[in-house]
């Protein structure tokens, strides 16, 4: 490694330790290389975000607690009517996830750097699309970590006892919902983190947008918890998948315009 000449040619990369192909390498222009670079950078961004989340894991704990508090508040809102609580379990869970997501998503760009979060990103050679997918995946994982606590708490509070085999399906649906919230959430969080009143704008923009996810998730979770007499779970799951597909593509496409210099 040359230490005296900053402008010297790049050091040779070894397969074991290098990330993406060296940027000035002509071979890097091919499409496969482009996708390889994107994938690598997405994973680098994801790893960095997960590392930063781990470092401030007290925040995750706080968000989980917040979720538990909302579940509690729903039961107060409904009253001691056990039947009403049971029937509303799916809805309460999805709402708790939604409300918790605003906390998580808002932080996702604030945790970047001390000042002017997105600007620092503009100076790094990250493909904006890789940045989007890395962050959106990170947000999805963060929100998924809420499931192991919030689902059992809701089941206990609302007196619901699903079969053990249902837990996997519950978690899978939670994952799909979290993903459906994360894609548009990451896009809007990138924009609103640079404005004042992010705490108002982000939910205002996001909540109407994710109505399909919320409806689909509530229906699907409800079918798992209370029985699926007519075999509709498949259709709702497909709807959730479709929404995810559309939004993960669309938001990825427009994201570069959202973070470029103005």
């Amino acid at each position: 490694m040359s230490t005296l000449h900053p402008g010297a040619a790049p050091a040779t990369t070894t397969a074991a330790t290098s990330g993406a192909p060296a940027p000035d390498d002509p071979a890097a222009r091919s499409t496969t290389s482009f996708f390889a670079t994107m994938l690598t950078q997405t994973l680098i961004v994801l790893r960095k975000d997960l590392l930063l989340e781990w470092r401030s894991r007290s925040r995750l704990v706080s968000v989980v607690l917040f979720g538990v508090v909302t579940l509690l508040l729903f039961s107060f809102a409904v009253g001691p009517d056990v039947r009403a609580l049971r029937e509303g379990t799916a809805g309460f869970l999805v709402l708790a996830l939604l409300l918790s997501s605003t906390l998580g998503l808002a932080e996702s760009f604030r945790l970047e750097q001390e000042q002017d979060a997105v600007e620092g990103l503009l100076l790094l050679p990250i493909e904006p699309v890789a940045l989007f997918y890395g962050k959106a995946l990170g947000n999805t994982i963060f929100l998924s970590l809420l499931a192991p606590i919030l689902i059992p708490v809701a089941l206990v509070l609302y007196s619901v006892e699903p079969a053990w085999s249902d837990f996997l399906r519950l978690f899978g649906l939670w994952l799909l919902t979290a993903a459906g919230l994360s894609a548009p959430g990451t896009l809007y969080s990138a924009m609103t983190s640079q404005l004042r009143s992010q705490d108002v704008l982000l939910p205002l923009l996001l909540f109407p947008l994710v109505v399909p996810v919320l409806l689909g998730a509530v229906k699907a979770l409800d079918l798992v918890l209370t029985g699926d007499a007519m075999g509709q779970l498949g259709s709702w799951t497909i709807m959730l998948l479709a929404f995810n597909l559309i939004y993960w593509s669309l938001c990825g496409i427009v994201f570069p315009r959202a973070i470029e210099a103005s």
Partner: peptide, 30 residues
């Protein structure tokens, strides 16, 4: 909330596109 004209144009266009795509989705879902 956006004071700078270029950014306002870009971001609101993005939000409008995303919103528009969502309308048929909401319709079918509901």
């Amino acid at each position: 909330f956006i004071e700078e004209a270029n950014r306002r144009a870009t971001w609101s266009a993005i939000a409008a596109i995303v919103a528009f795509v969502d309308v048929p989705l909401v319709y079918f879902c509901v």
